[in-house]
Structures are given as structure tokens and as C-alpha cells.
Design a binder for these strands. Sequence first.
RNA 1: GCCACCUUAGCUCAGCUGGUUAGAGCAUCAGUUUUGUAAACUGAGGGUCGUCGGUUCGAAUCCGACAGGUGGCUCCA
Length: 624
Amino acid sequence: MPDSNPSNPSNDSNQADQLHAMRHSLAHIMATAVQHLWPEAKFGVGPVVENGFYYDIDLGKAKVSEEDFGKIEAEMAKIITADEPFTKSEKPVDEAIAWAQQAKQPYKEELLNDLKRAGTTVAKDLNADELGTITEGDAQVANVSFYQNGDFTDLCRGPHVESTGKTGAFKLLRVAGAYWRGNEKNPQMQRLYGVAFATDQELHNHLALIEEAKKRDHRKLGQELDLFTISDLVGPGLPLFTPRGTVLRNELVRFSEELQRTAGYEAVWTPHMTKVELYQASGHYEKYPERFDVSSVESTDKFMLKPMNCPHVTQIYASRPRSYRDLPLRYMETTTMYRDEKSGELHGLSRVRALTQDDSHAFVRPDQIEEEMSNILGMVKQMYLTLGMDLSVDLSFRDDGDNYFGDPKVWKAAQDILEGVAKAQELNYKIELGEAAFYGPKIDIHVADALGRKWQCATVQLDFVQPERFGLEYIDEHGAKQRPAMIHKAILGSIERFLSVYIEHTAGKFPIWLAPEQVRVITVNQEEATVAFADKILSQAKEKGVRLYVDNSNESVGKKIRAAEVAKVPYTLVIGEKEIASSEVIPRIRKDMAVMDVPMTIGIDQFIGTVVNEAKSRVLKTSL
RNA sequence: GCCACCUUAGCUCAGCUGGUUAGAGCAUCAGUUUUGUAAACUGAGGGUCGUCGGUUCGAAUCCGACAGGUGGCUCCA
């Protein structure tokens, strides 16, 4: 494949533009190849995405599968070898519409019609970058631009590389279904994805990275490290946690609850089942009627499993009169809830039907909102700093749609408060319009997994709507009734989702405080004295709460060490005659961990003490 | 839910275009060995080839439905 060197390699933005043009040109070349192979193809849009490009294509009854990639790539190679120039032209928009009709490209025609009406259209996915928009802003579009290569012409804003030969290295990766303009009600097209880079070497590196990411997949590691399982009999989206996986869950929750307790939160407990009326009162039923699978238990009441927690907690607040002196009232509950996710959306631990949140709700006076939110963000920062993970922060605000409950003025005020807090906390945030919950704006914290996919973990939500709907109140200093605000938060978010990200982040090399097995003792032989010594170490560990296992199997020492390494156990102690005689051990330390903290030779008591301290202080010793 | 693909032992995978009792490595179990820092040796058990139905003299292999999974799309209170 021919390389294309940017004209000015020292200029990064120039290089980025060049790569963008290459990828975009490859999208056109792929479309050209598809048109050669399936002349009836109707084209949607073909933008550049991270690491590559895609094109949405409708072949009618015919379907592209990954088996076809060979011949598509071969056809693309022909086009690239032909080194056809990309030539730009402009047409008045009406002429362009006529072209689309004549070329039997209904999707292009629709886009052009929208462009013509630009300013009145509300299609937010009308991505101006990918179209031939000449004018900017809301004005009507007069002219649109086209690019032609060989026998393929496409509505396109450009820019492109000069000719098809200058497109670098690429590979088609997969085909997926994608709804036209991202709307479920529209026809589904086939989206052909490719990756592309300036050089073969970069492409090779990227593909190697994908392979590496596969090794860290939490579903694979969950099996290998014996953390969780998903049984067909129990059902999809309902993971079961083994003893080792449960250690991870419990330790994380313990930390989260410690942080919350320090910040004044008190534990509450609510049942996992409720009458449907609760969710009619909260407004959730109205918003998600199809999600409430209802079972009748007794009498005429209809019950459901709780899909969330806040409406339940409002009833604890409402159970007695509250004074302004009582606020903030802070309730926390780490609890499991149940949501009927669509089958195609389930994914390992990231998206499940039974999810556990380290949830909390603070009921606060308006003057207490900022401080409470700051405290919460402090907890979030401390959690993720301890775990060594990077955050990205979104302020999820409402858009102009009518999906939201409550007074828009109150919304504006709530959003201003959130942004103020984000600024005060010096968060590097971006605002996402239309991402708010129906009851209020959110601060959403995202963490990336090994494949670079971002997952929402922590969330802080400011809610004036539910206190209103449930008629929550407190008596102020003048004896008047006032309405509290409600602040929802989760630090880990869904524990299951958090674990999916965290397992991939660490590749299963957990720090001492989280490691399901902190120490493994390997016996050199099975003689009585050795077994007795191992037992003694084991009981000392148990006494101090250290998670230690003994491998006394009749295998070679080398094999047992390998097994401990594969299981990613932080410390391994080999015991034999020497250790029994001296009562000292030489801890073998997992490779990713710093070596200096533990001396070469150490007494058993002292070693156990070190492990206890490291776990207690939640040291992050791994270099990932 | 939608589109493409996948499903053979606990795990990772062979099994060519349909043709006798479906294989391997790891893991498990048993025996030998009593082991000193990333894999001792020998042997054994383990699969109605995801399920159901169809085509065929004959199906792990071809077709269909269903289930589960993978990658996306849509959704995520």
C-alpha cells in the first residue's frame, strides 16, 4: 500500500488534517468499491471517526458480511493503484437534488432537502462536517460541493487527498447495523468500518493494540481469575459473583461507604420490591412505561422490582416532620436494583439487569446545595485517585425538548449551581445538552476501558422535581413550610460496571487492598514439618484478616510459582527447610509492584503486619 | 429490540468439500516422584458437537426456528 507523507511533517495539526483527509478519502474509495460490486447500493453518510472511517450503505435485500471484505479491499486496492484524482465541483442545491433523484440516491436527496431548509430543520445528527455545506450557520444553503473520483461522485464538503493513491494504510474491520440518521424508526443500513493510518507501521501498531485490549477483556479475565460467571439458566445480564469476585465488590463498597460515613451519610435499607404506585408518583412510570414489568403478588396491588432507589428513600424522609435544623439529611444505601434492559444491550458486567449502586440521597436546604455537592465531588476524587484512574467530567444539562419535568427557571438555576461547583472544584468539564435526567441536571464522571470506550461511573444529580412530586417539606426558622432539594449520587456507580472497567484498567493486577488472594504460600514438599509451618502461617493470616491461601499440592515448585503468577497474586512465599529453621521468608513480589517496601528477608509476623498495613492504607503500588 | 457474525470437553482450539467408536494442549482425578523461585513423569475420567425440527442411506458438517454470545446501532431513570 502506498505511503503518503504529509508535506510538512513537523506540523502536527497539518499532519492531523492530512490523516483526516486520507481517512475521509478512504471512505469514498470504499463506497466506490461497494458501488462497483453492488451497483444498486444507496449511500448514507461516510464520516471519519477515531482511528478510521465508516460508510453507511443500504444494499436493499443484499447484505454485506465480513466475508466480503476481501473482495471489497481488493476493489479498493485497484482504485488506489489507479491513483484517480479527487476533483471538487459545486452545484446549486436544486440541481444537486435533481442529481440525487437521477442517481437514485434517496438518502442523499433527503440530506440535500434538509440542507436546503437548513435553519428550519431540527435534525441534530445532520453533521455539517460531512456534507457539502458551503454557507455557515442557519442560512439557507445556496450551493453544495461534490467530490468525484473515477466513476464515483459524492455529496461532500471535503477536504480530500489529491488522488486515490495518497491514502496510507487501511484495513476493513467490521460491519454493523446502524439506523439511518441514528433513529430507531428509520431503516437500518449497513455500516462498514475501517481503520486507517498514514503508514503500515502505525496500522500494525493499532491492530496490535486491539489484540492487547482483548487480553484485558473483563469477561475473559473474569473467567481466568475466577471472579464471576454468567449462567444461561439464571439468565442473561444476571452475573453471579464467586468468592474472589465478591471480595472485590465488598472491598470497593467498604471504601465507598467509609468515604460517605465520613461525610455524614447514614445507612438506610429499603426493600427490593414495591408497589407500582410509587413509580407513578415519582413520574418514572410515565417516562418509561414499557420498562415496568409488573407482577401481582396478592390482592389487587401490583408489585415490581425496584429499578432505582430514590423514590423509596423519599418515603423515609417523608415518614416524619423535618426541621431546617435536621438538614442536610444524608442517606446511603448500597443496593441492587433490576432493570429490563433490551437483550442486545447487555454486555458482560458493563450492562446488566441486576445492578448494585453505592447510592445516596441527601435532602438539603437550597443554601446547602453547593457545599454538599462539593463534598460529594471530593469523595469521588478521593476514590478514583486511590484507584489510580483518570476521570472525564460531563455536565449533563437539559436541551429545549419537552422531556423534562419541572419549571425551566428552576432548571436554569440548578444548572448554574452545578457549573459553579464544577468551576470551584477546578474540574475540566464539558457540557452535554440533552443528557440530563428528566428530573434534573447531572455531573457525570466517565472512565475509559481498555478499548478506549468510555463508561459512566460516578454521577451526582441535583433534583427539585421528586421533592415536589412527593410533597417533601421541612419547617424553616419562621415556621413556614419549605421544599428541600435532593442530591443523588453514586461514587462507583454500578459496582458491576465499575468492575468491568477496573478489571480492564488493571488487567487483573489488583492492589493489595483489593486482591482476592493477597498471599500464596507454596510448600517445597509435603512433609509434616512443612505442612505444620504452612498451617501456622495460615492461622496467623486468618487472625489478622489477610487473604492467604496455601498451595500444598504435589507439584514442582516451579509449577506452583507459575500458577501463582498466572493468578496475579501479589505476594508468594515459598517455604521449606530453610524457612522453618529461621522462621523467616523471602516474599516473592508480583512483577508490576514496587519492590522496595518489603525487605528481602522478613519474619512471618512482620510480613503479615506489612500486608495488613498496605491493605489498610490502600496503597497503590502497581505500575500499570 | 435491530443488523452481521459466532456456539465442538471446565478453558483455548483442531476436525478438508456430509461417510466407521469426535481429537489436542491446559485444567481435573489417580499413581510414581518429595521437588527451592514461571510448566516433573505415567495413566484415567470428561463431549447426545447450544436446543429443537428438517434434508439425506448417512449430519458436528447442509437448511430452518429458537436460545446464548461477539461487534455495532438504538436505549441507559
